[in-house]
Amino acid sequence: MVDTPRVAVLSGFGINCETETMAVFEMAGAKAERVHVNRLVNGEVRLNDYHIMAVPGGFSFGDHLGSGRLMGNRLRFGLREQVREFVKSGKPVIGICNGFQVLVKMGLLPGDEEVSLTQTASLALNDSGHYENRWATLEFDSNSPCIWTQGMTRMRVPVRHGEGKFVTGDRTLLDEWAKSGQLVVRYVNPNSDYPSASDNILPYPISPNQSWRNIAGVCDQTGLVFGLMPHPEANHSTWLGATWTREEIEHGEGEGMAIFRNAVNYVKNSL
């Protein structure tokens, strides 16, 4: 039993959502620490001393040479064994936006049983060709093993990216991942009834990037490693919603918090 899970929130080189990512884990009852990637590389701190690893959003290395590519390489080449050990020991990992891009480019997502760090999917430029900040509605796969999304149905969150179109080199993989519940979160029409997640690409801007099968985020086979393009940490309080001034609400925790509570509770109960 872990009383207060320790979260390593990676920072440095253009990661820029570490403040709010730390804040949401703290709100969820964990102890979050800002950990510069180089502190892990130089051995000053060890990844395995933490219970959760979060790779926040941002523009690591300016997203040049493809978003997340260079940070992914820093982790893949500089922290390969630390990361593999962390994942294999059953600890949760989340990548948000640029962090998701990092996890996909380094091959941790959708990943494989051996944690071989082989890239099988990618995040291409949005069909619009440019960066956008707008709110989207997400729907979760209730049959997914993902520990981060248990019990969640829908969530409203901002998307803020230019390269978020989830694609893969081999389309048959999509069927495999669907079957194993790895296509855990997808864009949906907010005016549709739950559940309505669909493989047919929804019109822009309901799908802001024209991702294949409307995929917004995926997890690995174990459900412990999870990444998504939208920003649940940006909806930590009701007053951050896109249309909260139009709604009769009791102010308090925002829709995005459930994800972080799930992981913190998982660590408390299972590690």
Binding site: T19, E20, V24, Y131, E132, N133, A234
Partner: peptide
Amino acid sequence: VRSYDHEVIAQSVIK
């Protein structure tokens, strides 16, 4: 305006 990030830092109340 949409292509500016106006919500990083998760503090944006009136957007």
